[in-house]
């Protein structure tokens, strides 16, 4: 029984393997969410529209599919392309869904805690969030870092947690209403997301343009199903297109919300 997936040197087997850490993390998030939502309801707070739990559940589902067997071990040991798909799910799409799924009342609670608000204000400043997100993405895909972290369960766990946390910080200024940032208008949010969709990051460039496989783990993974370099290049493309696709979905969501807000304001002003 394992806590988290780790790079292995054995040939791939379809024999199911339990990854206890993934279940524990998902259970903690599920129980935490239910408690939070119930307490907001009990306080008479705003839980938001009824689709919120579905969004949160979607985030949990993405985490489960990406980290548990078989995608977890396949991405940890055998295919760089699966590893990059996991990154898109765990580090980009799931954090957005988890944040969107939170009840409004949960954010309002933070307003009553000045210290938390101050820390969050600094950590989730768009410039900080942008730097952290891209910094974590670059560092955690650097070949020598991947080689070291993926060889131990705690290293692999730390890598996935860092993706998730960096993703939450990245999406916070776009999704969360607190701390209030009047300067970070919907147009600025669209620019923030679009910039991240187009940005060419070092890992993508290395994966796609390198003449040789850059990840030792995937190059020496048995059995080599196809060419390691092709798999790596596919991984680079999945990372680039996957991140861009999620960012554009964010752009569309921000734009639609902006239009709705403006329309409501105009209607209110006109009435």
């Amino acid at each position: 029984m394992q806590w988290w997936c780790v790079a292995r040197t054995e040939a791939w087997s379809w024999q199911w393997q339990p990854l206890v850490g993934v279940w524990v993390v998902l259970a903690v998030l599920t129980v935490g969410y239910r408690r939070l939502r119930r307490s907001v309801e009990e306080e008479g707070g705003d839980v938001g529209p009824s689709w919120r739990p579905t969004a949160f559940g979607g985030g949990l589902f993405l985490l489960w599919v990406s980290l548990d067997w078989p995608l977890g071990p396949l991405g940890a040991s055998y295919f760089a392309s699966v590893h990059m798909a996991q990154y898109v799910a765990v580090g980009v799409a799931a954090p957005a869904l988890l944040l969107i799924g939170l009840p409004d009342g949960a954010f309002r609670r933070i307003e009553t805690r000045p210290r938390v608000l101050r820390i969050l204000g600094a950590l989730t400043h768009p410039l900080v969030a942008f730097s952290l997100f891209n910094g974590v993405m670059t560092v955690t895909h650097w070949p020598s870092v991947v080689e070291v972290l993926m060889r131990s369960q705690m290293g692999s766990f730390g890598l996935d947690v860092s993706w998730l946390v960096a993703g939450l910080v990245f999406w916070w200024p776009v999704v969360a209403p607190v701390p209030a940032r009047t300067a970070f208008s919907p147009l600025a949010k669209i620019g923030y997301l679009a910039l991240n969709a187009f940005l060419i990051r070092p890992p993508f460039a290395m994966m796609v343009f390198s003449a040789d496989p850059i990840y030792r783990i995937y190059e020496l993974a048995p059995p080599p199903a196809g060419d390691a370099l092709d798999d790596q290049q596919l991984g680079g493309v999945i990372m680039k297109i996957g991140v861009a696709w999620v960012m554009f979905a964010g752009v569309v969501a921000v734009f639609l919300r902006w239009v709705r807000t403006e329309a409501a304001a105009a209607k209110g002003g006109g009435g």
């Binding site: 806590w3 790079a7 292995r8 060889r151 131990s152 705690m154 730390g158």
Partner: peptide, 10 residues
């Protein structure tokens, strides 16, 4: 594969 060793890994 090694056992959990968070500090060493980081």
């Amino acid at each position: 594969s090694r056992g959990p060793s968070c500090r060493a890994a980081w």
